[in-house]
Structure formats: structure tokens, C-alpha cells
Write a protein that binds this DNA or RNA. Structure first.
Length: 586
RNA sequence: GCGCUUGUAGCUCAACCGGAUAGAGCACCAGCCUUCUAAGCUGGGGGUCGCAGGUUCGAGUCCUGCCAAGCGCGCCA
């Protein structure tokens, strides 16, 4: 419909051009929007106001000429000039009714489109270090990323969901060493636990497992472990050098192979937990991409060699630097440390190089907002590698602050007291957690009230939407109990008897669904789905209270049932995208 | 100090990327259940869109400055 009106306007402009009212070379961006107010008809265009200035004409007079030049069309019943020069279109109600038949025929695929067809897009999200369970901060990225990915797929993009596993690097060594130290405690050794090690209970659990399976095979005397280790922070030392020394000690005392056991068991356990957690949260990936793999298969060397060829690397203070400041970053960055080790950034350059080589038209990284300072250097790296930095889109997800009613929930990773995503799910359920996480624009700071999410009351928007769905189901059950059968065709043939304002409002909202989806996808804004679904639920609840559906008049009854079933279908489609359940009874 | 993000009703947030009278929910007040689920609906009050300029037919939206909050500014990841 929108396209049709745009076409009509285009023809009108062409007519005016041949009549000499408008210049031949005048380029007109024709924009038609759905009218916000029913008084303004169904669609509106600001074309006359856009053209007024270049044409040196009064917008209202120009609008009149455009209206006069508009070709006749059966679907348009009235065209009006309004306000400062808006052209409002009133659509023939008969065309509006077609949406119900369309929804009925297309079912679950109603709303899907092909605007992204032929384009490959990668969405990388969560990618939390496998050094502990996911916490609530990761939840938002998980919910947002998964809905965004599904949304992009719904509008035709070929979507690849990926999790980057940071299974190399110092944090993993800290984990392996933490597990080993807890293991030694299990064996009966007495030794202090480093302030910078991972303190969560899960570390102890893994250590206990290892002890049960392997006995004392990895046991080394505490005295040897502690010998000549520089002091920890509480004792006036530096916690980083302390833990690094312990890592080195673990490697020497255990030897490469035994040390690797701790590394691998830790990684395997935690990654399995993360995968399981995400799956239960309704998040799936096509690929779990290993950072270690980039190290092992020479990808990092390859990427750095390429930078070197381009003259982007130099040596200073014994380290190798990437001249990122020449490409928009605030300063140059080290890629190979003085000790010969790659930095995290080096493997990230290789990773993004690899991503772009895989032929994605768009690469989307979803990061926590605290990583925003990292964007310029990654973009610089992409440019230096000779690729288009525009292909990378980084979406920043702000943290959610948890509340329990008025009270702020404290989180602290160090102390091990953080609220895990799993705990959150157990407390509020998958549906509410996803709904709340996706409800806001991602760059919006968010307050997540656990009490509200669990409340089974009118305060809770999740139930509000699900309740609308359940109500339709209930109506259909009642229909059955009354011994009536739905006559879909009878209803379809008599849709024009739906003349109540609630009904026309619903028709308009239903018709908007496909456009909403396309826009939400192209703008990377899943929250629009939430907004829409709430609006549709509101329209439905209002209608439900205003008019009975199960009336004696079979014609009206079936027409209304068709409308209500269309609502049910679209609610289901929207909630399916959000990966939220649609209970038939509440 | 520099950079990124945010600032809209008492609270939590929208506003179709520059359009018409800035909208919802919660909270508050007043109503609606012998009739399809009251987890619902109807009505009401509530606003200097952080502040000040600018751009134009038109600005919550764009540009500049300032104020405030969060985050970032490692040879950590």
C-alpha cells in the first residue's frame, strides 16, 4: 500500500514536471508514512513541503497541485490537504480487510520479508571469557544478540551467530592456576589463596572433581608452591606479579602436560556450563570460534605480516606496535609484548581479519558498553588490512542495574557473590528475563527490577502480552463449548461488517507488523518488537472489553473470530521472534 | 584532562532517523465483574523534552557551547 502511494506520487510529480510546474531535474525523495492520528487518514506524505523550497512555491499550493495531478486509484477513497502542507491519504476500507485473509494464509510466515536477501551478516555476541559462569550483565547481550540475529534472519539476511571463545591468554592461566590451588586444598595442603585468583565456588567444584577422579596425582607440597613467590597485595606486594609467579610455578612443578590438564578441564567445564546456560536461555550459535585456534594455525602471524607489509608496524622499547593513531585511534597499540607474547588485541586483529575474509557483507559485534574505547583500534586494524571499516558494526549494550524493589542488588565478580544468569533465570524465568532485557534500546542504561519481573500482576508487561494470547485461546475454547464451529470462509466473506473503531484500529496495527519488523531489523532495534507486541495486546484487550465476539449472529461472530485469530497469529509471530512462550491458558 | 554513551511526566521508558496537539506502563484519584479469564477495561490529573544559542516552512530529533550521570583512556582480557 505504501509503495503504491509512493508510486502515485511519483507519477504526479512527473506530470507536474511535464506541465512545467516543477523543474525537470528536480530530484524528489518521496516519503510516505503511516499516519499517526486516524484523523489524518491512513497514510501521509510531506512531499509538498520537501519540494516547496527548491520549487520556490508555497507548500500548501504545491500540495494542491500534486493532489490534482494524482492518478485515480480504486484503493484510495480520499486525498486531503492538511496542516502546513501534508497530503493525507484515506484508504478504501475493503483493502484494509485483506490483511486478515493475508495473515490467515501466511500464518507463521506473516511479516517475514526479503529486504535483506542475498546479504550475509555475522552476529557475534556474549563472547564472555570462559573463566566463570555467565552473570546477569551477559544476559542482556545474550538476549539482545539472539533476538537481533533472529530478526535479521526474519527479514531475509543470511545470519551467522558466533561466540568468540577467549581460550588463550593470561586470564585462562589464572583460571587454571586457581583450580590447581583449590585442588591442593582438597588434597589437604594449606596455602593462602591469591587475591587476584578466581574465587567463585565453581572453581572449587571443578577442583573437587579432579581430586575425586585423579587422587593426588597433581599434588605438590605447599612449601614448594610458595617458595620465593613475591608477596600478594594484602601483604604489601603486587597482586599481578604474585599471580603471574604462581602461574609460572604451576607450570614448572606440574610440567607442560599436567598443567595443560588443568587448563583443559577448566575450559571444558566452564564452556559446557556457558553453552548449557545459553541454550536454556534460548540462545543458539552456529559457531564457537576459538581464539587459540587463531594462534595455532598461524592466523595471527598472517594478519600481523599483512600489517607489516603495509608499513603499519614498528618496534619500540622491545615491543612491536601497530600505528593505529594514524587511522583514527588515540594512540598506537602494542601487538607483541617485550616478552614475545601476543597481546589480546593481536589475536583480535586476526579474528576480525578472519571474519572479513569469510565474506560477510556485515559483521556485527555486540559488546558491553565498557569496551567502547576499543572500537577505534579495531576499525583502524580493519582499514590497515585493506578492508572496509564500515563492514564492522559494533553495538554497545549498556549494563543493567539489578533491583529488588527499591533495593539495588550488589554484584561483585571478585568476591564471587555475583548474580549469575542462571540464578536470574531461576528467579524470574526465561520469558520475563528475555522480555525485560530486550524491552529497551541497547544503548539505554537499564534498571531491571527482579520483583517486577516476577510479579504476577498488571504491573508486569510480559504477562500482559501473553494474557492477550491466552484470552484468544480461551475464546476459541468457549466457542467449542457452546457447540459452535468456526466458519472461516463465512467470516472472510463478511469482513466489512467489522466497522467498530476498535476493529479498524486493530486492522491498522496488524497491517503495520511487516513494516515494523523490517525497520526494527535494519535499525538493529529489537525493542521495537516488544513495543509493537504490547501495543497489539493493548488494542486487543480494549476490543475484548468493548465487544463480545461470541455473538448469536453467525456472520458477525465469524468475522470477529477471524480478526481475533489474526491477532493471535501476529502475537505468536512476534513472541516467537522474542523467543518467549505463548501459553494457551494462564 | 580527553573520548564514548545517556539526559523526555513523581518512577521506568517510547516517539516510525526533521513533521501535525510529545505518547505508554507503573504510581495516584474516580469508575466497570450474575455476560467470551478483572493478569483486563474506561475516565482524570501530571511536561520549560538537562540549560543556552544556532540551522529552516518546521527541532525532543541536526550543529555549537555549557551542566549532570555512567563508562573508558594498560606491553589486562
Amino acid at each position: 500500500m505504501k509503495q503504491k502511494i509512493e508510486e502515485l506520487l511519483r507519477q504526479a510529480v512527473n506530470t507536474l514536471k511535464t506541465e512545467g510546474v516543477l523543474e525537470q531535474d528536480m530530484a524528489a525523495q518521496i516519503v510516505v508514512e503511516r499516519a499517526r492520528d486516524a484523523q489524518h487518514g491512513d497514510f501521509a506524505s510531506n512531499l509538498a513541503m520537501m519540494l516547496a523550497k527548491p520549487a520556490k512555491a508555497n507548500p500548501r499550493q504545491l500540495a494542491e497541485k500534486i493532489i490534482a495531478a494524482l492518478p485515480e486509484d480504486a484503493a484510495i477513497t480520499k486525498v486531503e490537504l492538511a496542516g502546513p502542507g501534508f497530503i493525507n491519504f484515506f484508504v478504501n476500507p475493503d483493502t484494509q480487510y485483506q490483511i486478515i485473509r493475508q495473515i490467515h494464509e501466511q500464518g507463521a510466515s506473516f511479516g517475514l520479508s526479503q529486504v535483506g536477501a542475498g546479504k550475509k551478516v555475522q552476529v557475534e555476541f556474549v563472547s564472555a571469557n570462559p573463566t566463570g559462569p555467565l552473570h546477569v550483565g551477559h544476559g542482556r547481550g545474550a538476549a539482545y544478540g539472539s533476538v537481533l540475529a533472529d530478526l535479521l534472519a526474519a527479514v531475509g539476511f543470511e545470519v551467522h551467530r558466533e561466540y568468540y571463545v577467549n581460550d588463550a591468554g593470561r586470564q585462562m592461566d589464572i583460571l587454571a592456576t586457581s583450580i590447581w590451588l583449590r585442588y591442593l586444598e582438597e588434597c589437604g595442603e594449606v596455602l593462602p589463596f591469591p587475591s587476584n585468583a578466581y574465587r567463585g565456588d565453581y572453581v572449587r567444584d571443578i577442583a573437587r572433581d579432579i581430586h575425586q577422579n585423579a587422587g593426588n596425582d597433581y599434588r605438590r607440597p605447599a612449601a614448594l608452591v610458595q617458595e620465593d613467590i613475591p608477596a600478594d597485595e594484602p601483604q604489601g606486594g603486587d597482586k599481578e606479579t604474585h599471580i603471574d609467579a604462581l602461574i609460572a610455578r604451576a607450570k614448572t612443578l606440574l610440567g607442560t602436560n599436567l598443567y595443560r590438564d588443568f587448563f583443559q578441564i577448566g575450559l571444558k567445564n566452564i564452556l559446557a556450563d556457558i553453552k548449557d546456560d545459553l541454550q536454556e536461555f534460548g540462545v543458539d550459535y552456529q559457531q564457537w570460534f576459538s581464539e587459540r585456534r587463531l594462534m595455532d594455525d598461524g592466523s595471527v602471524d598472517k594478519a600481523l605480516a599483512r600489517l607489516r607489509e603495509g608499513g603499519h608496524l614498528y618496534e619500540k622499547d622491545g615491543a612491536v606496535w601497530f600505528a593505529s593513531s594514524a587511522l583514527g585511534d588515540e594512540k598506537d597499540r602494542v601487538v607483541i609484548r617485550e616478552n614475545g607474547q601476543y597481546t589480546y588485541f593481536a589475536s583480535d586483529i586476526a579474528y576480525h581479519h578472519h571474519k572479513l575474509e569469510r565474506g560477510f557483507d556485515q559483521v556485527i559485534d555486540i559488546w558491553g558498553a565498557d569496551h567502547h574505547g576499543y572500537i577505534p583500534r579495531v576499525k583502524a586494524a580493519i582499514m590497515a588490512l585493506g578492508a572496509d571499516a564500515e563492514k564492522l558494526k559494533v553495538l554497545l549494550v549498556q549494563f543493567a542495574t539489578l533491583y529488588r524493589g527499591e533495593e539495588k542488588v550488589q554484584m561483585s565478580t571478585r568476591s564471587g557473590e555475583f548474580v549469575t544468569l542462571r540464578q536470574l533465570r531461576n528467579e524470574v524465568g526465561k520469558d520475563a528475563a528475555r522480555f525485560f532485557y530486550v524491552m529497551r534500546r541497547c544503548e539505554q542504561h537499564m534498571d531491571f527490577d527482579l520483583q517486577l519481573a516476577t510479579s504476577r500482576s498488571n504491573e508486569n508487561p510480559v504477562f500482559y502480552v501473553q494474557y492477550a494470547f491466552a484470552r484468544v485461546c480461551s475464546v476459541l475454547r468457549q466457542l467449542d463449548e457452546k457447540g459452535w464451529e468456526r466458519d472461516i470462509e463465512l467470516g472472510m466473506d463478511n469482513l466489512p461488517c467489522l466497522v467498530e473503531s476498535h476493529e479498524t484500529a486493530l486492522l491498522a496495527t496488524l497491517a503495520r507488523y511487516p513494516e515494523m519488523l523490517a525497520k526494527a531489523a535494519l535499525q538493529y532495534e529489537p525493542h521495537q518488537i516488544v513495543m509493537y507486541v504490547r501495543e497489539l495486546a493493548t488494542d486487543f484487550h480494549t476490543y475484548y472489553n468493548a465487544h463480545p465476539f461470541l455473538v448469536d449472529d453467525a456472520v458477525l461472530r465469524n468475522a470477529r473470530l477471524n480478526l481475533v485469530c489474526a491477532v493471535k497469529q501476529v502475537l505468536a509471530n512476534g513472541l516467537r521472534l522474542l523467543n518467549i512462550t505463548t501459553p494457551e491458558v494462564m
